[in-house]
Design a protein around this nucleic acid. Structure first.
Length: 111
DNA sequence: ACGATGACGTTAT
DNA sequence: TATAACGCCATCG
């Protein structure tokens, strides 16, 4: 299949943009969906390069623990990300972690 | 082209 | 269960 393999960034943005509201995905999940289960770091790097006026719901992407990566705090509105997640109806526990087993995005429906 | 960085993940202690 | 170290891939200088 002649897949228009665009840059890794574009793939991450496209995939994250397909995450429906009320659900979240981990960097590893995104990387895995891209066919590179070990490129979780690259995925996070791609989101880090996202502009402030991006339409990509990057705030729905969390780490494998289900929480906002502390490294984002200070560089980007990481604190805002958590508030945004709660705003979407996500339930965070006292540890500030989401219940991935319940909110984890299954990925795009194979069409 | 090379070396260092980074919004991660997994395994071991 | 929490903390620590290593490995992974892609991008930037």
């Amino acid at each position: 299949m002649t897949r228009p393999a665009p840059d890794f960034y574009a793939r991450v943005y496209a995939l994250v943009s397909q995450i429906p509201p009320g659900k979240v995905a981990t960097y590893g999940q995104i990387a895995h969906l891209l066919g590179q289960p070990r490129a979780a770091r690259a995925v996070g790097y791609a989101l880090g390069r996202l502009p402030s006026d991006t339409a990509v719901p990057w705030h729905r992407v969390v780490n494998h623990q289900g929480g906002v990566s502390p490294r984002a705090i200070g560089t980007l509105p990481g604190d805002h990300q958590r508030a945004r997640l709660e705003q979407e109806g996500h339930r965070l526990d006292a540890a500030g972690r989401l219940n991935l087993g319940r909110l984890r995005w299954e990925g795009p429906v194979a069409d």
